[in-house]
Design a protein around this nucleic acid. Structure first.
Lengths: 334, 334
DNA sequence: TTGAAAGCGCTAACAT
DNA sequence: ATGTTAGCGCTTTCAA
């Protein structure tokens, strides 16, 4: 019982037309008589013919498939972007190969290499930083790349982001306005540019505007996950900080619970603002006040840009900045 | 700047060998003189040649790519399985196409169709139930399918699961033993077999053993997400239930918070046991007592089975049942 | 509106 | 150990 034993030839023979005509019908080419079309369609259905995408890709040099590089599927933030990407891809009839990069610089480049060898028509890249190896792949590749939720300090790659600097700046200013003199900045590894070159900058900006000194002891960095945040709570208590800006919700939940379990009352004794407003932010108790990001849209817009590039349309804007916001919950006194 | 400018021909010409030799080198065939091999490798590197996986797939009828159908990438449970799948796939040098099915029966079949048209060498299917359309695709396909965290009441498809009936049975018995007379069973749609035919059965079993009557009013079902659970809390309060078994952590977190926000103290006035022990279970306050499942392994083992089937090895066991457990936390009195 | 034929880049016999 | 030669199943000119 072979399945793909049914080829375009079989359909052609059975329908008494040439394979070219079958191809036209399958591809919705208008130059086919209605009658012929119907006959071919009947045969296709009867034989259970399914076009071989691999052969099609080889012949047409288009696979209608795009690659999506994601650091980790279990990361709420990127998973949400992936949904946006997926929906828009669906809309434009592109298929997606979702590839985990594990956030390891070396693996990322290899993952991209795999994607390109599969002849994807384009790639959406997500990550906390762009390694040199990845950058090289992007410029060398002959298919378009779009960055989603991922910054490129050189600004050469089309990208969709929010203004991370302002977002953190505003949140920090909010805490300052609430009277805090010592605010901690808690982020993932500072080797990730998005932390060191953007978010930390926003934090410093706010400090500068308020005329406060920047105290490196208040800058804490660790992994992005819950456990890392939880463990970090002890260190936080050892600083003079009375409030914190945390760059990921999982970390923030960890810090919050670590603090609470150590007897520190949030927000009474310590205020926290987190960064992504993912579903976690409303699940913790107290709920987390948060910067809000249009995560789904970040992905959706990136995918839309990619479709345009793949169709060789001009891009009006190469670096799209989507609006962010802020939502007050219970981890701040408000 | 053309796409796959550098082909195997270019390498062959430049290295002064035949394309077959280049192919041998690329595929690690032993029948190549060391010297020739080195020369070819040098040229490959110099020209930046990257084998075209599409052409390779067409010629060899193998793509070393497998399809993974996931209901929703943002679902913690399945995302965790996906990690297990990904790691093992990596290990065996298979690539993965992760396809979102949105849990819609119609879309699932279409997604599988896409995957098959791409000539994947195998498929891992995850979902809360198997629609007839999906079942049909599976039996008709000529590539192996393995179910991960997904039950097949007909038992014909190879699968990896835990014993959902026993897991829920035991958890329910635990609540009964703690003195509860009215225990609510909270699940996703009962149209999903895993709920109606397995988990609910476990619940009923425990009731029967204890000599309790089954009260349909205590069986509540809604969406798997946090919001659905949160909203359900009101309904829960209107039943006579003093404890509940919840089949997903997100729902459980919702029920817990909904109850807490309504002034019901957990676990003092109401006990909850959840089902997956995903990271959410330790993030909520109180933390959720939970059935434990080896999620990562569920995916990993499924992928390992699939590799065997793709290599045409015999499967010792077609339906693998992995052990489950239980972890006591603070949503039960213990 | 339809058909014929030439590839797309590679693998896999089969030769040598 | 290496080369030659058919295809793999389809798209795409180019003719008719």
């Amino acid at each position: 019982m072979d399945k793909q034993t049914v080829t375009i030839y079989d359909v052609a023979r059975e329908a008494k037309v040439s394979m070219a005509t079958v191809s036209r019908v399958v591809n919705g080419n208008a130059n086919v008589k209605q009658e012929t079309k119907e006959k071919v369609e009947e045969v296709i259905k009867r034989l259970g013919y399914r076009p071989n995408a691999v052969a099609r890709g080889l012949a047409s040099r288009r696979t209608t498939t795009i690659g999506v590089v994601i650091p980790d599927v279990t990361d709420d933030y990127f998973a949400e972007l992936a949904r946006g990407i997926d929906d828009v891809a669906q809309m434009y009839h592109y298929h997606i190969i979702l590839a985990n990069s594990d956030e390891a610089g070396t693996k990322e480049a290899q993952v991209i290499d795999n994607l390109l060898s599969k002849q994807v028509d384009g790639v959406i890249f997500m990550g906390n930083m762009i390694s040199d190896a990845v950058r090289e792949e992007m410029v060398r590749a002959d298919v378009p790349f779009v960055l989603a939720g991922t910054v490129d300090r050189t600004g050469v790659q089309p990208s969709v982001n929010i203004d991370y600097v302002s977002a953190i700046d505003e949140a920090t200013a909010r805490l300052i306005k609430a009277g805090h003199k010592n605010i901690s900045f808690i982020s993932g590894p500072l080797t990730d540019e998005i932390n060191s070159e953007y978010k930390l900058m926003g934090y410093k900006n706010a400090l500068t505007v308020a005329g406060y000194d920047y105290d490196p002891a208040l800058v804490l960095s660790t992994g992005y996950d819950y456990q890392s945040g939880y463990k970090l709570a002890d260190q936080v208590r050892n600083t003079s900080a009375t409030a914190a800006i945390v760059v990921s919700d999982e970390m923030a939940a960890g810090v919050l619970n670590g603090l609470t379990d150590a007897g520190v009352r949030v927000p009474e004794e310590f205020e926290i603002i987190t960064n992504n407003d993912s579903k976690l932010a409303t699940i913790t108790r107290p709920q987390l006040s948060s910067i809000t990001q249009p995560m789904y849209d970040l992905g959706a817009v990136a995918m839309r840009m990619l479709t345009k590039m793949m169709e060789r349309e001009e891009l009006a804007v190469k670096s799209v900045i989507l609006p962010h916001g802020y939502v007050e919950r219970d981890s701040t006194k408000g």
